[in-house]
Design a protein around this nucleic acid. Sequence first.
DNA 1: CTGGGCATGTAACTCGTTACATGATTAG
DNA 2: CTAATCATGTAACGAGTTACATGCCCAG
Lengths: 184, 184
Amino acid sequence: MSGERGGLGPPQTLKLNATAASVLGLLHRGPMTGWDVARLAEVGLGDFWNVTQSQVYRELRNLEALGLVVAGPAGRRDKKPYAITDSGRDAFAVWIRREPGADLIRSPLLLMVFFGSHLDPAHRQRFLAIQRLRHEQTLDEYRRILDQVVHDEPDLAKVLQFAVFHEQAVLQWFAWLEHEERPG
Amino acid sequence: MSGERGGLGPPQTLKLNATAASVLGLLHRGPMTGWDVARLAEVGLGDFWNVTQSQVYRELRNLEALGLVVAGPAGRRDKKPYAITDSGRDAFAVWIRREPGADLIRSPLLLMVFFGSHLDPAHRQRFLAIQRLRHEQTLDEYRRILDQVVHDEPDLAKVLQFAVFHEQAVLQWFAWLEHEERPG
DNA sequence: CTGGGCATGTAACTCGTTACATGATTAG
DNA sequence: CTAATCATGTAACGAGTTACATGCCCAG
């Protein structure tokens, strides 16, 4: 009864959360310090799976405790390079076979629109204009990066292509909104 | 030094988080129990600003402590209707004037695609097919609801229209992906 | 050799999720 | 009357965010 997972036997069913799994995934590229993992996560997953530095460090500590990564000898400062272990690779392989869950979107902008009647039109339109501009820039940015990586990193390119379609949809919506507000 | 916010003077700059603000926003429609707020949040904000029951209850407690809502007399069971106060209205009005921040998207699907090379093609395609189907259904659903509310609830309709554009973009991406995988 | 920014990591806090408890209401 | 489901709420946990500490490196 007590000690149902007391330490003996390989933990068959350890459940990795998605953030931990991402860290493991990135470590497939070779040993890295927490800082580097965080940076890679930011550029690669960027806007579709946000991971902060602190999370990375926490997960690395957890993963080490589980034996899924090992820390190499600390270099300058505390700089510890972590490397994925074989169990780590196994755990990741198991994780990535689960069917992916539903997307989570959290949009302050849509929240604002939903409560739009509580906001005077001037404010509303100003906010919309700002956001629209921002999304236009974001779209350009995605297109630029996509061009750069399209040949070398096909998986990243797929993600970026999603980003492009998504941003286009957002802009389409802005256009539609303006058309709506017009007639009066 | 001690007690920088010790209790005297109106808390000019109390910072409402977005979830608390949503609760206040919904309470503009009239007094409601936590359950009702949660239900409204789910149908209205639904997929673009997720709010769970527990959060609602917690925020209601906080808001009451701050004097932004008041609880009426408990009815059957613990059923407590909460009503927004004048300070509540003020706080909400202040909140909704802040410029909305960036969207947060957290997509297990894109995570999977990003790590796609670690997954065998069979799995990958199966997952994509499942998700695609799901998004097709979701789009239909949004269109249906949009039709229902388009006349009575313009703000909700705007949100739903966004949902439709978004889902269309997702489907566009799926189509593009298949086209990509094809040639070999 | 010093001051500012970058690299590296930890700690504390807030928020979101999951699990649970229990009274009402309805179907059979 | 009893079982199932719905309504209502609390508690505990896990994940995400913000704030901080401190060593390294380079420009002046």
